[in-house]
Every structure is written in structure tokens, then in C-alpha cells.
Amino acid sequence: MHGRKAYQLVKEFASGEKGQLKPFNRELFGRVLEECNEHHGALQSLIRKMQEEGLDVQTARNADHYGALIHHLSLTRNKRCLMAYMYNRAEIIRVLAWKVGLLHELPEEIQEKLSDSEEEYFKDHAKTLKSYMSQMGLDVNVDMVPPKDPYIKVRVLEDVGGGIILSDKSANFARHSMHFLKRTDAEQYIARGLMEELTS
């Protein structure tokens, strides 16, 4: 059936949890592209046939015209499905760049799900954001609600090692240790799931 594979591709995207990425389905994506080429071939051969019969392609309304029309519509439908698949994934990747990617690489299990061009998109987007923020001298990615206290208590959930840059002090961030940190310093580690905020 026409457009069935493209539908499966979109359906697969929709069946995932909202806002979560699934692995990029290269195989199905490629097959939809193949199908597009088939439609294109069929469309051209039908038009050629009409021209050979001496008909005006613009105005003739015979069986070949409707055959060609159906192929044309299937092509645009496939295109829409492919575009929607890419676009909606790109949207999630952009969110990723805002949430976790500004200072760090993506976690491996997410990186595996991206296609090559998506990886590049992610890197470029994070880079653009970073350069914008350094030009403005403003971190646009912090919590929008003004804090009651600039310091918060956090617990380290995973071994972070020495990779932590703090503005006012240094400490040993072993797993399960608790710290009293500046909120702006801690935010990015909490977003990545390396620390959790403790409330009293």
C-alpha cells in the first residue's frame, strides 16, 4: 500500500514516550527513500507515455493522468512523513542541548540513538548557545525562578571525579557525599542526574 512504510516510521516515533528519543531507524528511513524513487520512476514513465500518445500533459484527464497523480500524492506524503520524523527528532535534540549539552558530552546511551547528522546538529546547537551566552555574559540556562537561598544542599549520586568546576571552592565529590553548594554551580549536575537536591 502507498505510504505504508512512511506511516510505520512516524508511528514508531509516536509510540515512544513523549519527549524521549528512540534509536534513529536507518533501515526504514532508507526504505522509504527507495519507495520515493520508485514512485518518481513510475510517475515519469506515465508522463512519458502520455507524451508519446500526443496528449497535453497539463490538461489530459485519462487513466494515466490519475495514475501519475496518485504517485505524485504518494511522493509528497512520503516527504511529509520523512520531514516530520526528522523535525520532531531535531526538536528533542535541541532540548537535550539546552538541558545537558552545554558543558558536557551526551551520555553514551543517548548518543547511540542519534544519526551522524543529528550528532552534528546537537554539537553545533550547543556551540551556538555557548558562544551567545559568552558574548552576552549571561547564563540563559539557569532556573527561571529566583532562589530563596543562593546555596543548596546536594548529595552526589555518581562518581563525578575532578571534573567539577566551582566558582568559590573545591571539594572531593565522592559518591554519596553531601555538600553545600552554590545553586548555580549545582544546577547542571542535577540536570544530568549526577547529584540530587536535598530538602529539609
Binding site: 502507498h2 505510504g3 506511516y7 512516524v10 508511528k11 516515533f13 509516536a14 513510475a42 514513465s45 506515465l46 484527464r61 487513466a63 494515466d64 490519475y66 495514475g67 501519475a68 497523480l69 496518485i70 504517485h71 511529509r80 512523513c81 520531514m83 516530520a84 523535525y87 520532531n88
Partner: peptide, 26 residues
Amino acid sequence: SYYDIDDILTEEELVPVVFHKAANGV
């Protein structure tokens, strides 16, 4: 929107039709 996933899935639902014109090659 053109990129709306739900809209695309809605349009995949089948409807019964009767052809008034013949179509070749499909």
C-alpha cells in the same frame, strides 16, 4: 502544522471510496 505527528497519523485512517475514473500503473 505540516510536521504534526498526530495529524499525519490521523490521515492514515482508511476510508471506503468508489473510483469514478480509472487509473493506470498503481
